[in-house]
Amino acid sequence: MHWVLRTAELAPVQDLAENLGSDSALHLNNSHLASTLARLLVLRGITDIESARHYLAPSLAHLHSPYLMTGMKAAIDRLEAAIERKEGILIYGDYDVDGTTAIVILKTAIELCGGAADFHVPHRISEGYGMKDDVIERAAAADIRLIISVDTGIRALDAALTAHRLGVDLIVTDHHLPGKDGVPNALAVLNPNQPGCDYPCKDLCGAGVAFKLVQGLMERRLTR
């Protein structure tokens, strides 16, 4: 195996290293450290000091508004109403780390807001990937009136029709690419990769999309 190291142009590295070394907020008093860090940042496309500050010292204030994501207001309106009315909520996740993390993020937020939510993690072998009609049917029979998918659902067109037929509202939160037939006919679809969505970061994972829903919910409740 032969490793090929990427190279960075010298001028932007030197400029950024100088700015890093003189920035009191970053406390980089070592010129060699500043130079090495500048090279790594430039290789990642970060060439100005403001972007470097955001990368090295992130803050909640740097987060994009969740409302830049298509469908966010409708999703928050429905979730907040379900919490206030003590409705049954089911979080439909995925079996990988992204999906299970997304479940924990959303379930914790709902409980902090005074609501309650059950969750379903499909069995990798017996159920496989994606939303299944029988799970939605069992949820409806148990008086669940809101299902929120996390890290799954963007291609669950049939499942969305089943939910609608049973009177269950569906909010899809996902990051995978939609299929050629478009997105599900759900109450809201949150996915930065769906057509027409202007959310700036297209690289969010499933847990990241769930977090944006939580961010919007918490911001609304804190500004009351």
Rank of each mutant, 00 (worst) to 15 (best):
M1Y: 06
L5A: 14
E9Q: 14
L10G: 03
A11H: 03
P12G: 09
L16W: 08
L16P: 08
L16V: 01
L20T: 01
L20P: 06
G21H: 13
S22H: 09
S22Q: 09
L33S: 11
A34G: 05
S35L: 13
T36N: 02
T36M: 03
L41M: 10
R44W: 00
G45T: 13
G45K: 15
I46L: 12
T47A: 11
I49G: 04
I49R: 05
E50P: 04
E50R: 10
S51M: 07
H54K: 15
Y55R: 05
A57D: 11
P58C: 06
P58T: 03
A61W: 06
L63D: 12
L63V: 07
S65A: 08
L68C: 12
L68K: 12
M69K: 06
G71F: 00
G71V: 05
I76A: 10
I76S: 05
E80S: 13
I83S: 02
E84I: 12
K86H: 13
G88R: 04
G88V: 06
I91V: 13
Y92A: 01
G93F: 06
D96L: 01
D96T: 06
D98K: 13
G99L: 03
G99N: 07
T100A: 08
V104R: 08
L106E: 08
T108Y: 05
I110E: 01
C113G: 11
A116Q: 12
A116L: 07
A116W: 10
A116M: 11
A117D: 10
A117G: 11
D118Q: 14
F119L: 07
P122R: 11
P122W: 10
I125L: 15
S126K: 08
S126Q: 10
E127C: 06
E127G: 08
G128D: 05
K132D: 07
K132S: 07
K132M: 08
K132I: 06
D133K: 15
D133R: 15
R138W: 10
A140M: 07
A140V: 12
A141S: 14
A142T: 05
D143W: 04
R145K: 10
R145Y: 02
R145C: 10
I147A: 03
I147Q: 03
I148F: 05
S149T: 15
D151R: 11
T152A: 04
L157C: 04
L161A: 15
R165P: 01
L166P: 02
G167N: 09
V168I: 13
D169K: 03
L170N: 08
P178Q: 02
K180H: 05
D181I: 01
D181R: 13
G182M: 09
P184V: 10
P184M: 02
A188Y: 00
V189L: 02
L190Q: 09
L190R: 10
N191A: 14
P195I: 07
P195V: 08
C197H: 11
C197V: 14
C201T: 00
D203L: 01
L204M: 06
L204D: 00
C205Q: 09
G208H: 05
V209T: 00
V214M: 10
G216V: 10
R221V: 07
T223I: 05
R224E: 08
R224V: 06
